[in-house]
Design a binder for these strands. Structure first.
Lengths: 212, 212, 212, 212
DNA sequence: GATGAATGAGCGTTCATTCAT
DNA sequence: AATGAATGAACGCTCATTCAT
């Protein structure tokens, strides 16, 4: 966590630092991101940086947290509907929210992605320790509820499915962004089509059923 | 690509270089891997390295290619069965082959995973440019054939499904290895159960059907 | 010397600063002691520090002076006996007092020791300039008196002996503390034995005399 | 220890590095000595330094060792006389050799002195661990022999005396150099007078004997 | 063709000191 | 008088790459 001082900074400066850091980590990745460049980008003194943060990792963890907070702005409202809408609608809205977050905060999103896929790095375990399990537990609960409501097959390994749903969430964001690399990125309609295909596949499978 | 000279090396030396590089990239990741350590591991001179390879990235790309070749040793045989077995069996065997590759070549596998998830790194685009499309095309063909054979729903966006299948392949390897972090890694049986759950989900979906 | 303001501080705060400084210089030594840590330890503002002291060295010199004052509390009473007890008893008590000071004020003692042994440091000469000669003069006077009283050989170079006595004082403290590193540090008895060996050596020498 | 490469350097360059380091450590002391300045003084690249030495401490330890070797050139010949001359002559010659070393290698001498008196520094213990005890053992053996030969009092605590002799050695060097700060430094005669006073004090003590 | 010493820019971090509030 | 944020030079150290032998 940043030191107290960082939060006492006037917002303009704090934002300058955050933006500089986000840009840098986005552009260079965790390993090659450089404090020197960050302070230059933010127009603060090198020494100041170390008044705000314990060390490089401290900043990185903070960005991750910030990213989480921003993501919640997108996903939180969806979760308010738990119980009010059916499971697949909820899942669809969650996926949609994820994509929307990634579109409007592409740098935070990319930084998060990198972390998820980093290997052999101390900081990953430090950050992931709790966060990982949380997500799995959340979706397992959701799945269990849906099962009880008769929305899901009863012969599922819920933990497995939960993990897959999370993994798919990443895939879908990833793929959608790639897709859009070739076109306009903010079409609500295309986004929905995309997610619907995913939900359709996940809910019904791709196998031709006898009764079709 | 390595320079000509590299391929003129006697095999033992070439292998030493490759193994050293694989170990280094596996252990430190793309960004932190160090040429100095690689040449030390390989017991060659620093200068020699630059006779064999243009630069660090050159080596990295070569490793990726090598990894691909080794993976084909596992997946290739499965593909011989195209036409002889049904689609889902084929898919299942492909996934199984992927896991087996990752278990017996964990370092190549990890290096590949890292690349896939790297962001904003020049080298990624250079490598991915062609390779990506190849895989997509391959699975699209497979899917088309399965559709024709009446194994798959007709209302699928095959390109989308192909991309998902590829993404799921990565997920499944990843998850299986994580799972096995907690247990023995080479149980054929557990591997199959794992993959079957995936195939089941992908083929039938998770939604409760009326006729259940 | 500290600035006026420092002495106008209420005692509690002044002590906090002093203790913080003593702790810091003891722990890190002159070169590595950090103002930042000192002000943190003392819970004062960095700016305040520079209101109290000209600079780092200023504080250091002051600590040295303080240490001298505290040492006098131990040695002063001994010197009251000048004329009342014989020279070697006086010397013995001086040495004992030195050890006692070092035991009860180990940090001041260590800081002083470090200074004595510092080389090529501007501050050392600044501090030592006057203090050194004072001690030499004092012991020369003592020695002269003892000579007059027939306690000492007449063929001694008193300045040389005075310097040696001072040097030995440091040695003895140093050695005693090292010795005690291996045992309890506060045994009056062992301390006396230790000093007596020193006095014995200094007074009679180690050479076998004919009349033994 | 320096890396192999350092010893393969042509002598001129190696000497440049050693001299630069000696000058730097002499001038700034262990803590403030700077690699940047050393490489500048030696006109080598920063990177080269780290090809020659593991780290700063590595260089420092090496200098200490070098100093030891040079000192042996002075003290070694004296020790050849063990058994051939009486104890006090031997001791006198040892002290003289120590002074001569310090006069002709004042920087090495000063660096060694600093180490002896450093506190709370990891490197000290690393270097001192063995060296300390060696010296004590050496003098204890010498003392024991002298006792057997009837040269020394029999009621001495030999370990204590050995430690004192070593401590005195440092004092004497220190004091002589200070003394000479005020005059020419290389007068053989004055040096001998100085040491003789020390030996006289140590052998006979300063107390007036009855038979005088 | 092989070698490995040399390079120097760049890294993350610490520090004593200044100065606006 | 007190504050503590800001500064930026300097630190020890690493690195990919070059090039003379």
């Amino acid at each position: 966590m940043p030191k107290e001082l960082f939060f006492k900074l006037d917002e303009e400066k704090r934002d300058r630092v955050i933006n500089a850091a986000v840009d840098e980590f986005y552009e260079y990745g965790y390993h090659k991101a450089s404090i020197s460049r960050i302070v230059k980008r933010a127009s603060i003194a090198k020494g100041s940086f170390y008044h705000y943060f314990e060390e490089k990792d401290d900043l990185y963890k903070y960005l991750f947290e910030l990213g989480g907070e921003r993501k919640i702005k997108y996903i939180g409202p969806v979760l308010m509907n738990i119980g009010a809408v059916d499971f697949f609608t909820l899942l669809r809205d969650t996926y949609l929210a994820g994509i929307r977050f990634s579109i409007s905060e592409p740098k935070f999103s990319a930084i998060g992605q990198e972390l998820v896929t980093m290997t052999n790095v101390k900081i990953k375990d430090e950050i992931m320790a709790e966060n990982d399990q949380k997500g799995i537990d959340f979706f397992m609960n959701l799945l269990k509820m849906a099962q009880v409501n008769g929305e899901l097959r009863l012969d599922l390994d819920l933990e497995f499915v939960a993990k897959m749903i999370i993994a798919f969430n990443m895939n879908i964001v990833d793929l959608y962004l790639k897709e859009c690399g070739e076109g306009p990125i903010d079409e609500e309609e295309s986004m929905m089509k995309f997610v619907d295909k995913m939900i359709d596949m996940l809910s019904l499978g791709i196998k031709k059923q006898n009764n079709e």
